[in-house]
Every structure is written in structure tokens, then in C-alpha cells.
């Protein structure tokens, strides 16, 4: 039997790697949030081209804040990978 040949350390490592992969699903939310912010910023620039500088900096801050949840899942994935 192949299943019986797997040691418990290897099983733990494999499951931790699987957990790291599952944790990175959180990246989806960050992608959606950043895309939404960028799309709205493009609309705003289309409406008011003269305010491009302010819209740009607001968008970058908003996108960075939206990115935070994705980065949490990245950190958790890295912690799991060293288990």
C-alpha cells in the first residue's frame, strides 16, 4: 500500500503546502479590489482630466490598502510553507 509508506512528517509537510495553496485564494479579493479602484480612477480621469495628479495618488493609496488582505494570505502561506 502506498498510503502506509508515507511518514507522518511527509504528510504534515504535504498538508501544510496544500494549506499554503488554499491560503493564496485570498489573492482574488485583492485583485478584484485593485481592479475596481483602477477602473473607477480611469472613469474619474475621463470626467476630470485636469485632476489627474490627485486622482492618481488617491488611487495608489486605495489600491495599496486593498492589497493588504492579499498580503496577509501571502504571509500565512509563507508561514505554512516552513512547517
Amino acid at each position: 500500500m502506498l498510503l502506509l509508506a508515507i511518514s507522518s512528517e511527509a504528510f504534515i509537510t504535504g498538508m501544510a503546502m496544500l494549506g499554503a495553496g488554499v491560503a493564496m485564494i485570498g489573492g482574488v479579493g485583492a485583485g478584484i479590489g485593485q481592479g475596481y479602484a483602477a477602473g473607477r480612477a480611469a472613469e474619474a480621469v475621463g470626467r476630470q482630466p485636469e485632476a489627474q495628479g490627485r486622482i492618481m495618488s488617491t488611487m495608489l493609496v486605495g489600491a495599496a490598502v486593498a492589497e493588504t488582505t492579499g498580503l496577509y494570505s501571502l504571509v500565512i502561506a509563507f508561514i505554512l510553507m516552513t512547517k
Binding site: A64, V65, E67, T68, L71, Y72, L74, V75
Partner: peptide, 13 residues
């Protein structure tokens, strides 16, 4: 925590 993890995560990745 979120402020420091944001900077750390970006540069580390």
C-alpha cells in the same frame, strides 16, 4: 500591524 505587514509583504514578495 496592517501598516507594517503591508510594507513587509510588498518588499518581501
Amino acid at each position: 500591524i496592517s501598516l507594517s505587514l503591508r510594507l513587509f509583504g510588498n518588499i518581501f514578495s
